[in-house]
Nucleic acid binder design. Structure first.
Lengths: 234, 234
DNA sequence: AATTATAATTGGTTTATCCAATTTTGGCTA
DNA sequence: TAGCCAAAATTGGATAAACCAATTATAATT
């Protein structure tokens, strides 16, 4: 007959107010929050409880805490969520293959968008990187530039969800990928093929051909992926 | 000449140990953690400090806390990270269009994987949903089943990254999408077109044709997307 | 005006204590 | 013995009062 009177969870209440202030634009990147003592008084909760909410935000990278200075919302959120994503992934016994799958999803979507609405300035940035790669011969640097190229296609989408998720995924297997790419880049034939794939992708983007860009990036990712699972060539 | 002696951050230390225990498999989904008092004693920190770490994990959905019972690692992590993703997205002034972009990336990758390695059992589940939709006429239910179908293609990938990110994205614009889909489903011609698109996608998956599946799902998403931005038909 | 000591502010951490929900325990009853 | 129920113990939820440490602001000094 009567309903349970659920007493509100203070933590969630604090978090809710925080979200509300962000939604309405009262709080934005770079802003400093009130001091913990003052804020706690405003909320009508103890400093201890408030801090539990604050540290949660800090854990996910959505809040910066500096002793003696204050708590603020970071300007750069591109690497937020990385830690929790990592923990979740480990708990799910995630595999490198799954990370690759996810990154492919991100990259395919990125080049598709780029093909549809790339600007001349963005094209220049991509072409600059391409030019640099064509001159480079050092395997390690080539691998790095290849990674840079892929990252740039994602960043140019300007989609914070896509960018943030890409960065979160990056930390999951970074080193292994890196090492393998360096090995790949030691084979001249392979390097030539990769550069050709990049060129094909660039041409597709320039021509605003989303389908061709998709095909090109899939080819490239599959090509690189084969080395992941079959070992280096030769 | 001398280097700064950095005293360790207790919170990060606690998180580190937690991650370490997860990485090595000592902690896994469903496990209960020691009681706060006991755990704090083990770590050599105060219960207050430990709780800051615990509540942080809880707020991101990676820990469950039940008063009187204990703290545990949830069995279902598929909805973890949703809250932080939502906050990040608001801070970045994310748009509905960007969510759609992200979801498309996820769904395209999902059907591509399905086409490559779908099992007979998975096909059955998809076909069951299709059969249900072919019989349904109620716009609201049709919209819900359409959403279910899309969700299922993602879940069947079995990729925790993809599933988790999909769920996180879901909460960002859920209601709007839902409402618009109901409106769409009130037009018989539109419903017929959508069902045809689903059929095409299913055929492609059955035939293990990733490219055709990609094209089909893109067609479908673009078709539904047009209603988002151009208003309902008529 | 620049520098430097000093004070005030702010986050980091601990302790002790109480409340509230859940679980366990032990005895009682059918 | 099996089941039920109340009391006790355990566990998380929350607060208050301190104190430390890093930073910032202030004021005194040169």
């Amino acid at each position: 007959m009567f309903e349970q009177i659920k007493q509100p969870n203070l933590l969630k209440e604090i978090f809710g107010q925080l979200k509300q202030n962000i939604r309405t634009g009262k709080l934005k990147k770079g802003d400093y929050l009130p001091s913990e003592r003052e804020w706690a008084a405003t909320l009508g909760v103890s400093r201890t409880t408030l801090r539990e909410a604050i540290k949660a935000m800090e854990l996910v990278g959505l809040l910066g805490c500096v002793q003696g200075s204050g708590n603020y919302i970071p300007t750069d959120l591109s690497h937020a969520l990385s830690e929790p994503v990592s923990v979740m992934f480990m708990l799910e016994n995630g595999t490198a293959q799954q990370v690759v799958e996810f990154r492919q999803a991100i990259e395919i979507a990125s080049v598709r968008k780029l093909a549809k609405m790339v600007t001349p300035e963005q094209l220049l940035r991509l072409e600059d990187l391409m030019t640099g790669m064509s001159r480079e011969t050092d395997p390690g640097l080539l691998a790095h530039m290849d990674q840079q190229f892929h990252r740039l296609t994602v960043e140019l989408t300007g989609n914070p969800l896509i960018i943030s998720m890409m960065n979160a995924a990056e930390g999951l297997i970074e080193k292994q990928i890196y090492d393998v790419r360096s090995l790949i880049m030691r084979d001249e034939t392979t390097v030539a093929q990769m550069k050709a794939q990049h060129s094909r992708l660039m041409d597709a983007i320039r021509a605003h051909n989303a389908e061709e860009a998709t095909a090109a990036v899939i080819d490239h990712l599959d090509f690189a992926g084969n080395f992941q699972y079959e070992g280096k060539p030769g």
